[in-house]
Every structure is written in structure tokens, then in C-alpha cells.
Amino acid sequence: MNAIYEPNPNLDQNKAPLAAKHRLKAKMLGHWKDVKRNKHALVLLAPYFIIFFTFTVLPVLMSLVLSFTYFNMLEAPRWIGWANYARLFAQDDVFLIALKNTLLFAAITGPISYMACFFFAWLINGLPPKLRAFLTLVLYAPSIAGNTYLIWTLLFSSDSYGYMNAFLMKWGFILEPVQWLQDPRFMLAILILVQLWLSLGTAFLAFIAGLQNVDRTLYEAGAIDGIRNRWQELWFITLPAMRPQLMFGAVIQITNAFAVAEISIYLLGFPSVDYAAHTIVTHLIDYGTIRYEMGYASAIATVLFVIMLSTNLITQKLLRKVGD
């Protein structure tokens, strides 16, 4: 009678760690070969990575650690655990106002400015080169203008000489000047309006560059496959071909939407009346550069970082579905 072979489970269990060790060693050897093969490129990239790590990655990690400490810039940091976060959400009413204003501001300006950047880029993309360059400059100029706050201050001036008050009083809509920049009812709306006016910036230029680089033969192939109008071209060809630019533009617009502070400070004051235009970043500036409570400021920065990172991840998932 032939003996029946039965595998020894103990023997297989002993071989598994050995095989995993060999795979890890082979993988590390492969990475080392890649490093040796691309050593010249890595040497050229090294200064950028050193600067990026020193001034971006390292400060983020330090801020995360400091958010669990009490640090006033005069004494050594003292570990206090989750106390800063408990204070932030349970005791700091101004932060809750700033959080609400920031989320509302980002929910309105983020999607609208993103779509506006792409719409205007798509609209002028088919124009002659000289006209396209001129319109690009005209639309991009507000985002780099240095007198932005002067223009909007004149427009919403609180006396009868302000353009908005003068127009409304002339046509009988109001009887006396409105305190546009001091009235909490209007401040956040004005902040949103100014941000939308400034929104055609870097993302707008990225979209124009992306549209110019779309392979024209894709449209010919699409016409053969049954695409009949520009909307179908946009959804099935243009947008999928521009995914890198779309992602870059999304990151830029999300950052601008959540990091608003300068407009609020120069146009509406710091702090604004009843904190009506207070944002997370202005709250961060308050505790970080005025009160020097760096541990608490680091907790505010960490919360903002988590919000922005989560929004970016959600946006990435949505953009992957473009063209499906």
C-alpha cells in the first residue's frame, strides 16, 4: 500500500518568515539598484527635497507636536496632552464662529471659483492667440493687483460718497448710507464677493495651459466613436485629458478658500465687528503672532490642516470619476 503524503504545517510555518525575509531583501536590493542607476538625477533633486523637508514637512511635524503642549515662546514647551483641543472646541466660542465662517466661505467660494476658472479658460481657449493672451491678462490681473482693498473700500465706503451708497440713494433704494464694512449682516457676503473677484489666479492659468496641451487627435477619434457636440467632447475627452491640471487647480482653490485672512484683515478690520468675518487663519494669527500662545496656535493650525487634507482627498475621489 502506498503511503499518503501529508504536508507538515509546522514546516510551512517555518518557511513563511524565511520567504518573506527573502522577498524583503530582494525588494531592498531592487530599490538600491534604482538609486544607483538614477544617482545623478537624485543628486540634482536633493537641494529641493532638503529645502522642502526643512521648510514644509518639518514645520508641520513640529506644529503637530507643539499642539499638545503649552508654549509661550519664553518658557520651554510643557506637555498638556489634549487640553488645547478641548479648549478649542469646548471653551473657545470665537473659534467656533471662525470655523462656521470658514466652512461657509469655503463651501461657496471654493466650488464657484473653481468652476469659474475652468469656464473662462475653456471659453477663451478657442480664440486667436493674441486675443486669448489679452483676455488672459485682463482676467488674471485682479489676482495680482496691489490696490484691491482700495477699490473695494471706495465701492463700499460707509458715507454717501461710496459708490454703492451713492448708487442706491440716487435710485431711491435707501434713504441714508449703509455701513457696509461695519455691519455684521453684510461683512461675510462682501468677503465672499471680493474673494470671487480675485479667484482667477494660478488655477486659471493652469487650466489654460492644460487646454492648450490636449492632443487634438483625441477629438478626431472621439468624433469617429460617436461624440457629437462640445459638451460630450468636454466630458469624455477634455476633462479626462486634463486630470493633472484639474487636481492642481483644486488644491490651489481649496487652499485659497480655507486660508483667507488678508482680505478680511485689511478690508473689514482685525478683529471684525462681532467676529462676523473672523476665520480660522485670522484666529491663528491672533494667538500665534499677537498673544504668542504657540501651543494653542499649533492646535488651530493642525485642525485647519486636517480640514484641508480631508477636503483634498474628497476632491481627488470626485475628480477620478470625471469622464466615466
Rank of each mutant, 00 (worst) to 15 (best):
G162A: 11
T311C: 13
L191K: 01
V260S: 05
D92A: 10
E233D: 15
T109A: 11
L196W: 00
L191N: 04
F258L: 13
R87M: 06
L18P: 04
M62R: 13
T238F: 04
I108A: 08
T238N: 01
A41C: 06
A133T: 05
H278E: 15
I124Y: 00
L18M: 10
K317E: 06
L42W: 09
V60I: 14
L268K: 03
V35T: 12
L127I: 06
L96V: 06
Y149E: 10
L45R: 01
Q195I: 01
I192N: 04
V60C: 07
Y114L: 12
Y48I: 11
A116C: 11
R320A: 12
A166S: 14
P128G: 10
V65D: 09
N84M: 03
A107G: 12
L309A: 15
F120E: 04
H40S: 14
K36W: 02
K21N: 13
P240R: 11
T109N: 13
G201Y: 09
D159M: 07
L11V: 13
Q316R: 14
Y140H: 07
V214S: 08
D274H: 03
T102I: 06
I124K: 09
N165L: 04
L168W: 03
R228V: 15
C117A: 14
T255C: 03
L175I: 05
D159H: 08
L205Q: 03
N84Q: 09
I227F: 06
V303E: 02
A76C: 02
I227D: 10
M169L: 09
A26Y: 03
S264H: 01
A221E: 12
L44R: 05
G201C: 01
L139R: 04
F120I: 15
I151E: 00
H283A: 10
K27G: 15
A19K: 10
N165P: 04
R243P: 03
S157V: 01
R132H: 11
I190K: 00
Q179D: 05
Y114T: 01
G201T: 09
W231Q: 07
I50Y: 07
H278N: 08
L18Y: 04
D34N: 10
H283Q: 13
H283F: 00
R185D: 09
R78C: 02
F207Y: 15
R23L: 15
L103A: 12
R230E: 09
Q13V: 02
L131K: 08
S199P: 01
D34M: 11
G30C: 04
L218V: 00
L198T: 11
K27P: 02
M28Y: 12
A261M: 08
K21T: 14
D183R: 02
